[in-house]
C-alpha cells in the first residue's frame, strides 16, 4: 500500500449500503403498482424493434404515469445514432 492510500479516506461500508439501497428501493418503487405485463411488454417491443433497428436493451423505457383519473402509458425508444458510413 502506498503512503498516499493511508490518507485517502475509504468510504464506510454502511454509507455504501445506504446509497445502494436508496437507488434500488427508489427504482423498485416506481415499478411497483404498475400492471404485471409491463416487463413482458418491454421485452416483446424490444424484439419487434430489433427486427428493424439494432437498439440497445436499455434504450426502451416503458412508464406508466397516473394523472388525475387517467393513466398514461409512455414508451420511449432511443434510436442509435446514424453512422455516416452506413449505406
Amino acid at each position: 500500500m502506498g503512503l498516499l492510500a493511508l490518507f485517502k479516506r475509504q468510504p464506510k461500508s454502511a454509507n455504501i449500503a445506504k446509497e445502494r439501497l436508496r437507488i434500488i428501493v427508489a427504482q423498485e418503487r416506481t415499478a411497483r403498482g404498475g400492471p404485471d405485463y409491463l416487463p413482458l411488454l418491454r421485452r416483446e417491443l424490444l424484439e419487434v424493434i430489433r427486427k428493424y433497428v439494432n437498439v440497445d436493451p436499455e434504450a426502451i423505457v416503458v412508464n406508466l404515469e397516473k394523472e388525475d383519473g387517467h393513466e398514461v402509458l409512455e414508451l420511449s425508444v432511443a434510436l442509435p445514432e446514424k453512422k455516416p458510413a452506413a449505406t
Partner: peptide
C-alpha cells in the same frame, strides 16, 4: 464504526 447502517439510515 460505520460498519452498520444506523436507525436513521
Amino acid at each position: 464504526a460505520g460498519e452498520m447502517m444506523s436507525v436513521d439510515d
